[in-house]
Design a protein around this nucleic acid. Sequence first.
DNA 1: GCCTGGATTATC
DNA 2: ATAATCCAGGCA
Length: 213
Amino acid sequence: MTRSPRLPAPTEPAPSIEALAKRRLPASFFHRDVLVVARELVGCALVHRRRAGMIVETEAYHGPGDAASHARFGPTARTSVMFGPGGISYVYLCYGIHQMFNIVTGAEGEGQAVLIRAIAPLVGLPEDPGVGRGPGKVTTALALDRSHDRRDLARGALYVAAHATPPAIATGPRVGVAYAGEWASRPWRFWWKDHPAVSKAPGEKRPRRARSS
DNA sequence: GCCTGGATTATC
DNA sequence: ATAATCCAGGCA
């Protein structure tokens, strides 16, 4: 018999914070190439204290050679954390307004990080699928800011937990990095296909009904 | 030191 | 389409 199409998070039972804590990912999860980690993070839970969201969209930023990455200038006061070992948070202020949450990946010295671009509400958040749609909204929803920079995700109240496996993952170019030349076109953005909490890239057309002629 | 421009979002 | 808002990083 036909199984009804699998729907994303809202139909799955919301886990408790206690259940998520038992599924915390170890540092070794992040000690791999950023493209692997960025893809596998989709479906995982991002947990901060008593709040959690399911990661539905990520972007991979490679080392110093990636013209779109903050690592492109080498280690600086702000970005030196990117050149440490994976599994540490990197939070920075963008446009003077928005806090962006990233996770360093790879081995020490590589300069890689994954930007968390969208989460769907799991625990302690409004049911509104738009609450974590967009990187600035992710930090607002989870009450994260620059004070959470350089945290070890293997310990403490901020961490990633295994949660769901997406039925399909879509990929495409990263958002907002047009200045990076050909690096901008690399398909290093990963998202849970058709999930309502995924952000809309600028220029991406919203679904539109046929216009009457 | 000064100047430029963002890994964005809300609103006009 | 464009303002909001601040600071990192380049260059003098």
